[in-house]
């Protein structure tokens, strides 16, 4: 019977004192009151039946949370073991791709530098002597990078790459979602 009364109407019929207490009840059940405030609350609750009933409702929610939240999402041993294998692989296996990529990226840097130099040179001395175009160099240095992509090495390293690409792929489509969730 009590629970069926809408919250706003219940509030309207309360005395000033009760209204203050109601406000404090939430702070009380979430452990946010000082000793003095708790004493004042206790004195009121002792002789006000309606505030006492309200306290019982608040306590039921807290009880529910304290009882069930710590139990939510308990992992089983198999899950923890599986995660540990992944952590181990990523922590102690030297990422082979990273070291293998170094000469390739050095080559790429060199090519880019050469291209920039060629561009600047051609720009400043365009009339004098046009340089031969450089696509041959670019093709030669880019090839190893493309063959690098289907990497037969370590599956462990394939994972972060996959999630990274997923991150970039999903980023624009995922962006409007949170606003759509808001009522």
């Amino acid at each position: 019977m009590y629970l069926k009364v809408p919250f706003s109407r219940r509030q309207a019929t309360l005395s000033m004192r009760c209204r203050t207490i109601r406000h404090q009840l939430k702070a009380y059940v979430t452990d946010q009151l000082s000793q003095a405030q708790r004493l004042r609350l206790a004195k009121h609750i002792a002789h006000c039946e309606s505030c006492y009933a309200e306290l019982q409702c608040e306590l039921a929610t807290v009880y529910e949370l304290k009882r069930h939240l710590p139990a939510l999402g308990q992992p089983n041993a198999a899950q923890l073991a599986r995660i540990w294998q992944g952590v181990k692989a990523q922590t102690w296996q030297k990422p082979p791709r990273y070291t293998d990529l170094r000469p390739a990226s050095a080559l790429l840097t060199l090519t880019l530098t050469l291209m920039c130099a060629a561009f600047v040179f051609r720009g400043s001395a365009a009339v004098a002597a046009p340089l031969p175009p450089s696509p041959a160099i670019v093709r030669a240095t880019l090839t190893p990078i493309f063959t690098e992509t289907p990497d037969p090495l370590g599956n462990a390293m394939a994972r972060p790459t996959a999630s990274l690409t997923a991150l970039y792929a999903n980023a624009p489509s995922a962006a409007p979602a949170p606003s759509a969730r808001k009522p």
Binding site: P70, L72, G73, Q74, P75, L80, I83, W84, G86, S163
Partner: peptide
């Protein structure tokens, strides 16, 4: 790891995503 998983699961409510997060975190 158990506590990290519980925390991740309570926030994501998804077992596989929680496992991924625990691995990333550790």
């Amino acid at each position: 790891a158990g506590d990290v998983y519980r925390l991740a699961y309570s926030l994501l409510l998804h077992p596989q995503d929680s496992e991924d997060v625990v691995q990333e975190v550790m």
